[in-house]
Structure formats: C-alpha cells, structure tokens
C-alpha cells in the first residue's frame, strides 16, 4: 500500500485533490507495460495502440517480470502510483506467443483482465493515407450479436470501450470526429453459448471462440443534400486480428461497487434524465409546470347561495317523499331553535 501523503503546500494539495474520486470521472489513463520478452509484433501493436490512446497513456520503457494472472500486485502498485486505471501489457512467450493483456482497476485494485493473442498485425505505416489527430475521440463500431450474448465478448467490448472511449462528455465538436475503431467477430462454425455449469474458462472453449477483427478507419463526411452527411471510410491502420486467451472476470462484490451510480440531481430529474415524473414539465422560462387531475364535479351537491325560503321548502318536499322519522327529527329541532 502506498503511504498516505499529507500535502505540505498548496500545489501538492491541488495535485492530490485532482486524484481524488469524482462524481463524473476523467478518462482512464492507460499504462503500457512490457513483459520479460516482447517480439517485434507486440512492440508494434503497443506502439500503435499508444498512438491511438494518446495523450492519456503512460509508457513504461523497461521490461518487467510480471505475470498478472498469477500476481497482480505490481499492476495495483503502478495504478496507485501513476493514477492510472487501465493497463495494456505485452508479452511474448513460447507457450503464448504475441500476447496482449488488457486489465483495468477499480480503486487501485485489479477489476478484470483479458488476454488476447495477436494473429495478424498491419501497421499504420503500411497505409499511405491520412491519419487522425492525436487526442481526438474515436467513434466505435461493434459488429456481432455475440457482443450482447457471450460473456467473454461482453467483457471484451466493455474493456475496449473503456480503453478508447470510456469518458462521459457533455458535448462533442462534430467536425472533430475523425476516425473509427471497428471491432467485429469472425464467423464461428461451432460456437455454443457458454455453458454456465462448465464455465467458459476452459482451454478447449477458448480454442473454439472466433477471432476478433479490429480495424481503424478515418471518416470522410460528404454532402448528401440533407442535414446528415454521407459517411465514407478510408483505411488508417492499425489492423489487428486477435484471438481470445485467458481471462479473469470481475469479482461480483467489486463489480457491484464499481457500477454504483451517483444519485441524479434534482435538475436532471426535471430534465427527464432520471425516472420520469408524470404531469410535470419545465417550460421554456425554466418554470416547473404541472397538470392536476381531479374527479368530475358533482353539480347536484354544489352549495349555492343559502336562502331560508328555498331551504325549508326543499326539506319539506324531501320529508314527504321519503316519509322517514330520521328526516323529521332535525326539522323539529330546527323549529325549536327558531
């Protein structure tokens, strides 16, 4: 555990405050780490993914003898030290050649991990096309029904979205949309939906899982005669073909804590972001207006102006028609009072 630092001046205090938990979080900073050995392919992949992730990326230049699936304490230490919450680790071994591990942390503790093997890698430099500006947000495209059904691919989608695009923003400059990261899944001949009893962490299952294609394109927006422009894509690179390997799912307790959302503010509720309140709306002036529904009015019971003459005749008529003693008694009392 890192020692807790008490700020000694205003500057370090501000720096510490910037690291504190926020309601709306900043983008996840990723640390790029190399394992004991990385081949040419892994080096290239990490370099190009770093180019896409910049400026929210930290590169570790030295080799590290770490095995996150056995012991993740180093990752947790780095996460706390660098205020980073994502990791991309590259390692190439004889058993698992050209491997990438994407890991993310929650509260400086490891949340979940997924290992991907690089089967094919085409570098950015091989396409002589314009590249995107560093720091611009990409648009993401996922194509397969497995991203909605298979737990392994749901995790991969969540990790990739967090890696490239996890930040919640209020607005985006439309001409600033420059590139697309497209993630698709190959066709799988014999893919059953994971057996919940056997679990999907078995090695045989991993062999059967289809490949993932990651493609990066730049966007060209052409006039279409309407407000919405026509989209054309140009290859940008890197192109990656990945296969799934080991993974570690999130601990349910920790996942629950990580998915906790802040309470919506009153203003947001009125805007209709939260649970919608019926019959309430905010008008253009910012005033809250409501509609009230009431039952239909019974006009027979409406109290009009009281007049002595009218009242006595009415009561007498009633008494005659119903001929009940109960009606008679109040009348007698009234007379006595009069």
């Amino acid at each position: 555990m890192l020692r807790t630092v008490k700020p000694r001046n205003a500057r370090s205090k501000r720096a510490l405050e910037a690291r504190e938990a926020k309601e709306v979080e900043d983008v996840r900073t990723a640390i790029f780490v190399k394992g004991t050995h990385t081949g040419e392919i892994v080096n290239g992949v990490m370099k190009e993914l770093m180019a896409l992730k910049r400026p929210d990326a930290i590169s570790f230049s030295k080799k590290n003898a770490i095995h996150p699936f056995e012991d993740a304490s180093s990752l947790e230490f780095w996460a706390g030290k660098n205020d980073a919450s994502m990791f991309l680790m590259g390692q190439s071994t004889k058993k698992r050649p050209a491997g990438l591990i994407i890991a993310r942390t929650f509260d400086s503790r490891l949340l979940d991990m997924c290992e991907l093997g690089v089967d094919k890698f085409v570098s950015m430099a091989e396409f002589k096309t314009p590249k995107s500006t560093p720091g611009h947000k990409p648009m993401m495209h996922f194509a397969s029904e497995l991203f909605d059904t298979h737990p392994r691919f749901i995790q991969v989608k969540s990790l990739l979205m967090d890696f490239f695009n996890g930040e919640v923003i209020e607005s985006i400059c439309l001409p600033g949309l420059e590139h697309v990261i497209s993630v698709s899944i190959a066709s799988a001949p014999s893919l059953q939906i994971a057996n919940p009893i056997l679990g999907d962490s078995q090695e045989e299952d991993v062999q059967n899982l289809p490949k993932i294609h990651i493609r990066t394109y730049t966007v060209k927006l052409l006039p279409s005669g309407t407000r919405v422009p026509r989209v054309e894509l140009t290859e940008m690179g890197p192109f990656l073909d990945l296969s799934l390997r080991r993974h570690q799912a999130a601990d349910p307790e920790m996942w629950k804590a990580a998915m906790r959302r802040p309470k919506l503010k009153k203003q947001d509720l009125e805007k209709g972001l939260g649970k919608k309140k019926k019959n309430m709306e905010v008008d253009e002036m910012g005033d809250l207006r409501g509609r009230v529904h009431i039952a239909k009015q019974d006009l027979d019971k409406l109290q009009t102006r009281k007049m002595k003459g009218l009242k006595s005749t009415l009561v007498e008529e009633d008494g005659r028609s119903e001929d009940s003693e109960q009606e008679d008694d109040p009348r007698q009392k009234k007379r006595k009072r009069d």
Binding site: A21, S85, D107, V168, S171, C173, R260
Partner: peptide, 27 residues
C-alpha cells in the same frame, strides 16, 4: 441539438446507455 462554437457545431450528447465500471469509488 447543437450549439455553435468557433470550431464548428457542438452536439449536446445525452447520458450514455452503456454502463461502464467506475475507476474509483463514488466520492
């Protein structure tokens, strides 16, 4: 809905529908 800005129109984004885990616990 958009707002004009010197670099071009700013689209006002709604809240995301996909839920991603937080990096740090709620303050």
């Amino acid at each position: 809905p958009t707002q004009p800005s010197p670099d071009g129109p700013l689209a006002q984004l709604p809240a995301p529908t996909t839920q991603l885990p937080r990096a740090k616990p709620l303050p």
